[in-house]
Each structure stands twice: as C-alpha cells, then as structure tokens.
C-alpha cells in the first residue's frame, strides 16, 4: 500500500512539474507577456512582478524561483491589478466554487446511481428506455447550454429560481443542476451497464440460491460490485465539475474561482491564468490520487503494491 502510494505520488509530482514548467514557458512566449522586456506597465505592478519573479534575473533563475514559489504555495501577483495576488483570488473564490462543486457532485452521484440501478433492474422495460433516453440527451447537452436553458426557462420566464448571483441556497440550485446534469447522465449509463454485467454473474445466482430477497441481493451483492467503476469515474468527474464551473459561474455570475479565471482569460491576466492553472492541476491530481487509493481500499482484489488488478 505504502509502496503504491509512493509510486503514485512520484508520478503525480512528475505530472505537476511538467504542468508548472509548461505553464511557465508558455507564458513567456505568449504575446504581450509579463516577462517581455519592452512592456509598459504601471510602476506598482512592475514592482510586484520584480519582487516576485525577479524580472532582471536570467530566465533559469526566474524559473527556479517560480518552482520554489509554487512549492511554498505562493502563486504570485496579478499582472493587471496592483493590489491583488493569485493567493487572494484563490482564498476568496475557491470556497464558493468548492461548495457549488460538492453540491453538483452529490447530485450527480446520488441521482446517477439511482437512475442507473433502476434502469438495470428494469432492463428493456419502459423505465430503462426512458432513463437511458434522458441520459443520452444529458451527455449530449454541454453544461453551459443546460445552464442557459435552465436560466432562461426556470428563472427568467417562470421566475421559480433566482436568475443569478450567489446569496442563498436557492441561488445554488440551478447552477448545481446545470453542472451535475452531464456527469449524472454519464454515471447513470455507467451504473446501468456495470449493474447489468454484475447481475449476470454466477455469484448473484448463488445469492439467490441462498434464499436472499431481491432487495438484499441488489444492495449487498450487485450494487457493491457494480459501483466500483463509478468510483473510478470520480476522478474524471471532479475534472468535469471543475472545468464546467468556469462557464457555469460566468453564466450565473457566481463569484467563484472559475469566474475569476474566466475574467483573467478575457483580460489576458497572464500571471493569474498561470497561477490558477497550477492550483487547479494540484487539486485535480490530488483528487484523482485520493480516488485511486479509495478504490484500492474498496476492492479487495486490488493489490496496491503492484497497482494491478488481482487474478
């Protein structure tokens, strides 16, 4: 177990280093970048950048400084706004994004699994066809389109929900649903196919031959095994919720990190783009690592030392 985690951590660090390096050098070649020599910046910003990156130092010095800064969790100043640092933006925006993301993950997993299980148990009946038709629609509607539709019909036309902003629980519902819809549909499909596969297994017959009720068989024998692939999807799910949040926060005017990120893209605020990208990458890689470790704990067949499936 320890060996496996160590190995995974190593790969994660290599990936992260690649990301940090790539971001750093990409930003240097970007048109109008903060590292170009002939730039006209307000003196305060120039001073901030100077203090943080040491713009007069050679590039390799700047690069190592940047690596050290990332390790010490310091993502540097904004390139456009003088008194703002990336760390400020993160501590201000991330809690909001986190809350929204968690709400969406909860909706996606809970409802996705529920629909998937129902569809599998009622295979080839109308319940199955209905859920799967909705699911295929769900994965075909990008979250930002879902968000605009929800906003237009439920908030603007019917006035059931607030149109935008981030004030009460009411305000979180539409964005969370819009964010969750796609992953939910995906989870429903995944659960269904995995459930059908599991239900055809001999051990389900064994359980039935023991005289267990179909409810017990579904929950204790089928679902436990069927949900393993869903657990592996939690990593990509986090990624999808995270990137989805950029546009959702933009549409609903939610002051989360995604919103700031989109603004920084529009403003070409390079240092913010760079810092937030690195921050998001860390979050994602850690989430994926956690999911993999959790999977190893849930599935007894996984021998974590080798990182391969048993048998």
């Amino acid at each position: 177990m320890a060996k496996y985690i160590g190995k995974r951590l190593l790969y994660m660090i290599i990936s992260l280093w690649l990301i940090v390096t790539a971001t750093f050098f990409l930003m240097r070649v970007a048109p109008g970048n903060p590292f170009a020599s002939e730039k006209k910046l307000p003196p305060e910003i120039e001073a901030n950048l100077q203090a943080h990156y040491g713009l007069d130092k050679p590039w390799y010095q700047q690069y190592t400084d940047y690596l050290v800064n990332v390790v010490t969790w310091d993502f540097g100043p904004s390139f456009k706004y003088k008194s703002q640092t990336v760390n400020d933006l993160i501590s201000e925006g991330f809690p909001v994004s986190f809350l929204l993301g968690m709400e969406a993950i909860f909706i996606a997993v809970a409802l996705g699994v529920l629909f998937g299980v129902i569809a599998a148990l009622k295979q080839n009946k109308w319940q199955d066809y209905t859920t799967m038709a909705i699911a295929v629609l769900g994965i075909s509607v990008p979250s930002f389109i879902m968000a605009s539709f929800l906003q237009y019909f439920l908030a603007i036309k019917l006035g059931v929900f607030p149109v935008a902003r981030w004030e009460s629980f009411q305000h979180t519902i539409l964005p969370a649903i819009a964010l969750a819809a796609g992953p939910m549909a995906y989870i429903a499909r995944l659960t269904r196919s995995s459930m059908i596969e599991v239900l055809a297994n001999d051990y389900i017959k064994t359980a039935k031959a023991k005289g267990l009720s179909s409810g017990v068989i579904t929950v204790k024998h089928a679902m436990r095994n069927a949900l393993l692939p869903v657990v592996t999807y939690l990593g990509p799910l986090t990624a999808s919720i995270l990137t989805g949040s950029f546009v959702i926060e933009k549409i609903f005017g939610i002051p989360g990190l995604g919103f700031h990120f989109v603004t920084s893209i529009t403003n070409r605020d390079y240092t913010v783009i760079m810092g937030v990208t690195v921050f998001y990458s860390i979050i994602l890689l850690v989430a994926i690592l956690l999911v993999d470790i959790a999977y190893g704990i849930i599935d007894p067949r996984i021998k974590l030392a080798g990182g391969k499936k048993g048998e």
Binding site: Y11, M12, I14, S15, L16, L18, I19, A22, T23, L26, A239, L242, T243, I265, I273, T277, Y280, S281, L284, L285, I288
Partner: peptide, 11 residues
C-alpha cells in the same frame, strides 16, 4: 495527468 481542458485553455 495534465488536466485536458486546462491545457487546451492555456494553449
């Protein structure tokens, strides 16, 4: 391991 959409955005 590099998040796909983030990389695309960056590029």
């Amino acid at each position: 391991g590099i998040p796909y959409l983030l990389l695309v955005i960056l590029l």
